[in-house]
Design a protein around this nucleic acid. Structure first.
Lengths: 341, 341
DNA sequence: GTCTGCGATGCAAGCGTTTGCAGAAATCGC
DNA sequence: GCGATTTCTGCAAACGCTTGCATCGCAGAC
């Protein structure tokens, strides 16, 4: 016999103290109704006194499955990911599921580690809401037979749901709206991500502007993501000499950074220049002026994902699913009629 | 024999495919050096081909411990918690530890569940950064023998580190600063938490104001936490008829909400009223006007916690530790000389 | 040629649960 | 009061891994 590793804090200890077998203890703790009330309370008392907590690893192992929902996100600071995560978490808790989250920080090495972790944990379902998902990882997940949902990747698979937001539509709506206000010189400010979805947005922007008004001017700028990045990109825009009457930003944080820089330059919003964002985070409502932006229904996305991984939508689907979300324009005070040029 | 539950995706499968025993496979996958190179590569090939991922539950069970750091926070949306979490996570990953996070949403029922989860997972260390920690839960954790760090609770224990920020000092510094600017009518805006730390802050505020100037007026208001809550509290303040020349807010989010409401009322900041926050979140720098606030070194806190749970500070300490952090005032544009009354 | 030493591998117990099955105890019918 | 149920409880195998110890094969020493 090998030596004991630590103080005995297992079913056996409780069983001995209560004078029953481990099976009975197990049944009590799992609320199986076949245990006599007197035995039951004796066991509960023993467990309580020993400060016993079941070993979840052993439980998962014995049961052959866990009650854990795995969530992988790129970046918790980004309200887009955060809100989806929070919705998933609350849905999961409502069903008595535990949640394990991993952050990738946009790093594919970290993404790989996270996927391995989730598979290793034999999670009951996996939601990967990351902007950097890679094809071979999708295959890995598919091979693991874990029901999963991915965000914004191109290839639905067996047991895998793919959900995405129709950013093209959001951009088109914004450009049409600005165009109707008379804007003919517009800029798009993105961030340095060269990944699929973003550069598609840039393309869509250019196309939309030219469709609304063939003579209109459109330019693209970029900086790092976030408040600072927006500011930096705005700086570059100003230094380039280009003077748009409207600036579309790829997300709200960047838009707020942009507005700050413009204000410092002495420009008034929206009198001198209109600014729009994307996502409709809380801050968009509270910055000054309140930001016109495209609303991404993050809670709805979270619920849909949950439903597809655990809920009614969980049924095996061989072909995979693709769900597309339509975003809406939310008009606030950061946009107005185009300044005379 | 019981029936197999799922497709055999275990060490045995790999072992058979590679024509070796499970022990050998285990040794290969754990990088023990005693395996012959040829065997080693055969095993790796087999594992690769089977798309094998070790079952972490079984591993933890067999090893008698996990390589997981458990983190519990009140609310990921709050940059205070988020930043500490992120620091902890990156420290953990740097050491090859996995991380499991749980959100309590300020709900003690959810906190209990989270603590149970962490103990059940037999995490190698636990950091609980929650504002609602309860004494009996501390006892529970202490009883579990898991090295832990708590934030801002009063009773250090064996194997438990307690870290807290000296909010009193932060408040005193702010009040002194405002007092020196001539402010004699001040308000403090907190949120509805009636828990220890917060109400201590209120008390400290009142004392500080009276110490600086015995004739000064000081009042306290409160709303729910967050941007909306700040706005609501400011509304109440305005309706009360009290007209402070300076308003201290319990955190930056509330301060931004407050400023928004004041601005809507036609008040100018800081000409008519000065506003300060607490935490020094990114937004404090980007709101308008940029917010004077008290800086809480969240990264430093994260590192200290990690070090005490896993690093050099990890050594058993029977008496418990208490670490106190000193906050600094960061002056920006939301504060100025007191308006003439 | 036997022995020793050693590197590489396998054997099997053990980690803390769950759970099918069997057996014991309590209850019931008559 | 005795068998037939119905409850309740215990036994032991299984979950997938790690790891101390035993074993095996082979090289070098004598």
């Amino acid at each position: 016999m090998r030596k004991r590793r630590s103080l005995a804090m297992n079913l056996d200890a409780v069983a001995q103290k209560a004078g029953v077998s481990t099976s009975t203890v197990s049944r009590v703790l799992n609320n199986l109704e076949i245990v006599k009330t007197s035995t039951r309370s004796r066991v509960l008392k023993a467990a309580e006194e020993l400060n016993y907590h079941p070993n979840l690893h052993a439980r998962s192992l014995a049961r052959g499955k866990s009650r854990i929902l795995g969530i992988i996100v790129s970046n918790m600071e980004n309200p887009f990911f955060l809100d989806i995560y929070r919705t998933l978490e609350s849905d999961a808790h409502a069903q008595g599921l535990e949640v394990v989250v991993a952050n990738t920080d946009y790093r594919s090495e970290q993404l790989l580690a996270s996927v391995q972790l989730m598979i290793g944990l034999r999670v009951a379902g996996l939601a990967a809401i990351v902007s950097e998902m890679e094809e071979h990882l999708i295959q890995t997940v598919a091979g693991s037979r874990i029901p999963a949902a991915f965000y914004d990747v191109g290839t639905p698979q067996k047991n895998i749901t793919n959900i995405r937001v129709d950013y093209r539509k959001g951009i088109k709506k914004t450009v049409s709206y600005l165009s109707a206000l008379g804007h003919r010189r517009m800029a798009f400010i993105g961030h340095h991500s060269t990944l699929g979805p973003i550069s598609e947005r840039r393309k869509t922007f250019l196309e939309s502007v030219h469709r609304c008004s063939p003579s209109a001017e459109a330019k693209i700028f970029a900086g790092p993501d976030g408040l600072d990045g927006g500011r930096q990109a705005a700086r570059e825009l100003l230094e380039s000499g280009f003077r748009p009457t409207a600036i579309l930003c790829v997300n709200d944080f960047m838009a707020v950074g942009v507005m700050r820089e413009l204000r410092e330059e002495g420009l008034q919003i929206p009198r001198d220049v209109s600014v729009t964002g994307f996502d409709n985070i809380k801050l968009a409502e509270f910055c000054s002026p309140p930001l016109t932006t495209v609303h991404i229904p993050r809670e709805q996305i979270g619920h849909i994902i949950f439903d597809n991984v655990f809920g009614d939508g969980r049924a095996e689907h061989d072909t995979g699913r693709e769900i597309v979300i339509d975003p809406e324009l939310v008009v606030r005070d950061s946009t107005g009629i185009a300044a005379k040029s």
